[in-house]
């Protein structure tokens, strides 16, 4: 757009002023086109022949287009290109710092985040519930720390809780109903916000693993792997508050979490 002819501050020298109107409008049109591409292209999803080659590069392409728009506005509309060095320095150095620093901190935290899943001592004592894993029979895998549960929950959510749903269908529907609505005299409603033994991941995991009320709710730790129990926990956690039709009445307390 504007050339370097006005480098070093024409704008501060009366007399040498000229209009950039044409260049500005041209840039406005280009920005509009880029934005239109950003929004319109995903509609091509309905045409796999066209969309399939674009798909793998679409995310990077979006990033590139965003950076290009950003750069164009700064360089032309804000006129930083060809303006004084001191302005460029004042703006670009913190910008670069921000662009490098924040992703770096984010990346570091991912690296130092302990990989979740397995790796908990099987005889661990759960400090919060005071639960000690049984020494007889297969050792009960201790529940995960909360934030790992959350991450794994979101991962399971991404897969529509398929694994947990399947297990629930095999092992739990007989007492808790097809949608988790509960069965009179057999199992509680799992779709309300009412829980007798708590609804945090840890609570649910322990309920499933070691059973409740003298085995009326059976313990599953002997017949299910830790990961299987977790998957079913993610699934029943997702049922919370869904209030399936024909739900059994509340036994326990209303919980927020």
């Amino acid at each position: 757009m504007s050339q370097g002819h006005d480098a070093h501050a024409t704008s501060h020298e009366a007399g040498a002023v000229h209009s950039h109107r044409g260049a500005y409008i041209r840039l406005g049109v280009i920005l509009t086109i880029v934005t239109a591409i950003e929004l319109a292209l995903p509609f091509l999803k309905d045409y796999p022949e066209i969309w399939n080659p674009i798909k793998p590069v679409w995310a990077p392409l979006l990033v590139v287009m965003s950076i290009a728009k950003f750069g164009a506005v700064v360089a032309e509309f804000m006129h930083l290109r060809g303006d004084r060095r001191v302005y460029q320095f004042l703006f670009m150095s913190p910008l670069l710092l921000a662009v490098v620093l924040f992703p770096a901190v984010g990346a570091l935290s991912v690296v130092t985040f302990r990989p979740f899943g397995e790796g908990y001592a099987s005889t661990a004592i759960d400090v919060r519930s005071g639960y000690v894993a049984p020494t007889k029979g297969p050792a009960l895998e201790a529940p995960l720390a909360d934030e790992k549960f959350v991450l794994a929950f979101n991962e399971a959510k991404g897969k529509n809780f398929e694994a947990g749903k399947k297990i629930f269908g095999e092992k739990c529907v007989s007492c808790h109903g097809k949608a988790g609505e509960g069965v009179a005299n057999l199992g509680f409603n799992l779709t309300d916000n009412c829980y007798k033994y708590g609804s945090t991941f840890k609570d649910l995991y322990l309920t499933v693993a070691k059973g409740q009320n003298g085995g009326k709710m059976p313990a599953w730790s002997a017949s299910m792997k830790g990961e299987e129990m977790r998957q079913v926990v993610y699934y029943i956690k997702s049922l919370k508050g869904s209030n399936a039709a024909g739900g059994q009445p509340c036994v326990g307390d209303q919980v927020a979490d």
Binding site: S19, R21, Y24
Partner: peptide, 17 residues
């Protein structure tokens, strides 16, 4: 918002003239 950047640039331009 994007278009407002254009009109803003045009305002600056007009003022300079």
């Amino acid at each position: 918002l994007l278009m407002s950047s254009l009109t803003m640039a045009l305002a600056v331009d007009a003022m300079k003239l």
